[in-house]
């Protein structure tokens, strides 16, 4: 804005004045709390994940199939995948809220939610296939 132009105040309302009386935003605390709770759940799951990585480092496909076929491993893996991509979506949403303004905000948020949901579903289906119907044939 150039300095020679004299600014004028048409409406002066504080952010608080605008928000007051509209009720709460409803979703803010939820988002913050769920981000923390998924983080807390991911702490032990990450520890488990590190142990599994050490078990599977350099493994061949049949080792992975054998490992993924155990119900305990598959359950932990499912919990890890669901919580990871849920936590990812919550975190990336905050980045969108911070940096994407105006009309682009809604499509960006929807794109993120869709992508997170699809990656999460893909992970779940892959774990289930590995656990229940893995392919061990060379031609697959």
């Amino acid at each position: 804005m150039n300095a020679s132009h004299t600014p004028r105040i048409d409406v002066m309302r504080s952010q608080l004045g605008r928000a007051r009386g509209l009720g709460s935003g409803k979703a803010g605390v939820d988002h913050w709390w769920l981000e923390r709770m998924s983080a807390v759940a991911l702490v032990p799951l990450s520890g488990w994940f590190v142990l599994q990585v050490l078990r599977l480092a350099g493994a061949e496909q049949q080792d992975v199939v054998e490992w993924g076929g155990k119900p305990a491993n598959a359950s932990m893996l499912l919990a890890l995948m669901v919580l990871t991509f849920y936590h990812m979506q919550l975190g990336l949403q905050v980045i969108i809220d911070d940096y994407v303004h105006g009309k682009a905000h809604l499509p960006a948020s929807l794109l993120l939610k869709g992508a997170a949901l699809l990656i999460g579903l893909f992970a779940v289906v892959a774990v289930l296939k590995l656990a229940l119907a893995p392919s061990t044939k060379a031609g697959a």
Binding site: F85, G91, A140
Partner: peptide
Amino acid sequence: GVAAAAGSALGVCWLNAAAKGPE
């Protein structure tokens, strides 16, 4: 966080490949 998310998506590809078969 962003890098970890991108890497996790690649990790899912690894898992998917293990489920799909040896090739």
